[in-house]
Amino acid sequence: MNYSNFTQNANKPFVSITGQDQESISFILSNTDLSVANAIRRAMIAEVTTMAIDLVEFENNTSVLTDEFIAHRLGLIPLFSSDVDTMIPFTSRECSCQQYCPSCSVELHLNVKCDQESRSVTSNDLISVHQQIKPITSESDSGILIAKLVKGQEISLRCIAKKGIAKEHAKWSPCAAVAFEYDPHNRLRHTTYWVEDDVKSEWPVSKNGELEEEPAEDEPFDYLAKPNKFYYNVETTGALKPQEAIIAGLKVLQKKLAFIKKNVEGIAEEVGTGGVEERMF
């Protein structure tokens, strides 16, 4: 689409990043509609593709935990999934293979035998065949605990990590929590605070409230006003960097819109311009 036609700069969405670290990012999105803002949130949570262990083949498991238990835990371990789409082109549902193939999956191995008194099996023990797609690591942390073994116990297994989205299972979600807020002072009166005496003394204003001007005591209620400024805080599991998750989410949205556009155009060609409206409404 040709955006240069937009003359009014004010209609363009605007993003300002207010804070960022390894796992989370906070930013303010403004000049857009609530529905768009929420769609971004939803896309980030549910439709960003990542890698996660989906099939586990046990060769030996003499730990106290059952196979399914360990498999479930393995599934929830985040795997580095930056640029996953370039490396693994398909999710397992899109892929034409029978069960899994290199174009939709990655293999990981876990072979641990306990020779000491006891030891923990963590995500660091998971060895990936792939260069980049492997369990997340961080310096501060000794890995995600999978199981604990005592002397003589052994776990050896083969995992197949597949590409997927969180609509299918939450393990594919790159986001831990997505904070989303607008109108911290409740100017728009979208919510009705429950109070005993007084809203101000009873309802603490969130941190984002500092970024907005406090409404004056006698400010008239603008019933036509629409939410315009959205405060996000995206915390990821580590599978993606926070900004990657956001961009991936936007891409998902873009794809969806493109899909709609393509289909609408297809219909328009078929029936003629007038027909589209008839069909759509």
Binding site: L34, S35, A37, N38, A39, R41, F180, Y182, D183, N186, H190, T191, T192, Y193, W194
Partner: peptide
């Protein structure tokens, strides 16, 4: 679903 604040607490 909508992204709107819920009217009720």
């Amino acid at each position: 679903i909508t992204g709107e604040m819920l009217q009720a607490y």
